[in-house]
Simulated assay, not measured.
Amino acid sequence: MRPKFRKNFFEYDEFLLLYKHPVKNICFILSDEEGSILGGITGTIFWYSLHIDSLWVDESLRGKGYGKELLTNIENIARENRCKLIQLDTFSFQSPTFYQKNGFECQIVILHPILLKKFILSFLRL
């Protein structure tokens, strides 16, 4: 039911029709020679923006540049699709400083009652 509601909502909103942009799901996977998944990044392109849904790198590979490489790959796809904004949200225990080191700026901090702080970060240099 939710997909149909969203489809109807977006189809009939006249303002949004002016900025209609195809929705694309993006995914890059980091794997070893045996095919085991060691990391990846997923995102959704819509309205000339990219929302990064998830980024994960296996603990054994952290600090070796793989996260930055995944971000660069998805940023290149955003450029190719004429995105004007990359956005993501993350919690304080999910390393918001990693994203800030890679050019994201914190737009808002929300105090979550259980999960500490939630950060909304955006990247505007496309």
Rank of each mutant, 00 (worst) to 15 (best):
S92Q: 06
V109H: 14
E59D: 15
V109F: 04
I114M: 01
Q94Y: 07
I114D: 01
N73R: 14
L116C: 06
G67I: 00
L88C: 02
S95F: 02
F104L: 12
F119R: 07
C106K: 01
G67P: 12
N76F: 14
L70R: 11
G63R: 05
L116H: 02
G65L: 03
R79Y: 10
S92A: 07
S60D: 10
Q94N: 04
I77Y: 00
K84Q: 15
K117H: 09
T90G: 00
A78G: 07
E69T: 14
L61Q: 01
L61N: 03
D58W: 05
S60W: 11
V57Q: 09
Q87T: 14
L115R: 07
L116A: 08
F93K: 04
K84N: 14
Q107L: 13
Q94W: 03
P113F: 05
S60A: 12
E75Y: 10
E59C: 11
I74A: 01
P113S: 05
G67Q: 09
E80N: 12
K117C: 11
Q87H: 11
L85M: 14
K84I: 15
S95P: 05
P113D: 11
K118N: 09
S92D: 13
S92L: 06
S95A: 12
I74F: 00
K64T: 04
F93M: 05
S92Y: 02
L85N: 06
L116V: 01
N102M: 04
W56V: 15
V109C: 11
C106V: 13
I74H: 02
D58S: 11
K118A: 01
L111V: 13
G63E: 13
F119K: 03
S92W: 01
I114L: 06
L111A: 12
L88S: 02
I108D: 14
G63C: 08
T72R: 10
P96M: 03
K118V: 02
E105K: 15
R82H: 14
L111Q: 15
R62E: 11
N76R: 15
S92P: 10
V57S: 13
L116Q: 09
N102L: 06
S60C: 09
D89T: 00
L116F: 05
R62C: 14
S95E: 06
N76K: 15
K101E: 13
L85W: 14
F104S: 01
R82C: 15
